[in-house]
Amino acid sequence: MNVRKMRQMLKNQSGTISAIRANGELGRRIRDMGLVPGASITIRGHAPLKDPVALRVMGFTLTLRNSEADLIDVEVK
């Protein structure tokens, strides 16, 4: 199994979310946007200063700050 934090994923890498370690408002925001364990995601790219990160989930594009991506574990394909 190749699990890593979302921040460490490279552009165009895909994977399945295995765990989300965010609680409270952030946790809820993340889940509201469809980031839940089992969802498959693809990294679309990073902003010019490497942060935030843009990713594709359920057919749409979402952005997260790196500090937020740190709380999401992804099993990389």
Binding site: L26, I30, D32, L62
Partner: peptide, 10 residues
């Protein structure tokens, strides 16, 4: 800061 969880709409 509020979470930056933001949609990039098409």
């Amino acid at each position: 800061s509020a979470p930056f969880v933001m949609e990039l709409p098409p």
